[in-house]
C-alpha cells in the first residue's frame, strides 16, 4: 500500500506492507539516522516525533501515519548540535547510538515544558536507555540544554 506523510516538512510517499513499522520503512529508504536498538519499544533509540510528540518508531505502523508530520533528527540539526555541546561539557557522550533518540526526546521536552522539575525531566526521558554514560552526567547535560535559549 502507498503511504504519504510529511518527513521534516517534505511530503514523501512510500510503498509499504500493511505490517511494516516506521523505523523499518525509514531505514529502508535511506533515513539511517533512525537507530533500532531493540525493535520492541523498550530502548527509545528509534524515537522520532509525530506531530511533535516523541514516539518509538519501531512500534508505529507506517500505515498509521498517513498525512502526519514526522520529525527526525535531520529536522532539528541545530538543536542536536546544542545538545551535543552540553553532552560534551558533562562527559556524557560515548558510543552515540542512543544520542539521536535523546536529541528528539529532549527537543520535544524543551518545547513542551517551560521550566521542568527534575522529576518531570526524568519522567520524560526515562524511556531512553543509555548503557555507556552512567546516566547522571547525561541528566546534567540535558538540564543545561533545557536552560539554553
Amino acid at each position: 500500500m502507498k503511504v504519504s506523510f510529511y518527513l521534516n516538512d517534505v511530503l514523501v510517499s512510500y510503498d509499504v506492507k500493511p505490517h511494516e513499522y516506521l523505523a523499518a520503512t525509514l531505514r529502508r529508504n535511506g533515513v539511517k539516522s533512525i537507530k533500532v536498538g531493540c525493535n520492541e519499544s523498550s530502548c527509545g533509540s528509534c524515537t522520532l516525533l509525530i506531530e511533535n510528540k516523541p514516539v518509538m518508531s519501531c512500534s508505529v505502523l507506517t500505515a498509521s501515519v498517513e498525512g502526519k508530520h514526522i520529525t527526525t533528527v535531520e529536522g532539528i540539526q541545530e538543536e542536536a548540535a546544542k545538545l551535543s555541546r552540553c553532552f560534551s561539557n558533562e562527559g556524557a557522550d560515548q558510543c552515540g547510538f542512543c544520542n539521536v533518540g535523546y536529541a528528539l526526546v529532549c527537543y520535544a521536552l524543551k518545547k513542551e515544558y517551560k521550566n521542568p522539575t527534575d522529576e518531570e525531566i526524568i519522567n520524560y526521558i526515562v524511556g531512553n536507555l543509555c548503557r555507556c554514560s552512567g546516566l547522571y552526567s547525561q541528566l546534567k547535560a540535558i538540564k543545561a540544554y533545557l536552560k539554553e535559549e
Binding site: 539511517k32 539516522s33 527526525t72 551535543s84 553532552f87 560534551s88 561539557n89 535523546y102
Partner: peptide, 21 residues
C-alpha cells in the same frame, strides 16, 4: 583539558556511520 569528543556532534546529528548504516 576539556576536549569535546571528536565524533560527538556528528553522531548526535545522526550521521550514518554505524555498521548496518
Amino acid at each position: 583539558n576539556k576536549t569535546p569528543s571528536v565524533d560527538g556532534k556528528g553522531l548526535m546529528q545522526g550521521r550514518s556511520f554505524y555498521t548496518d548504516d
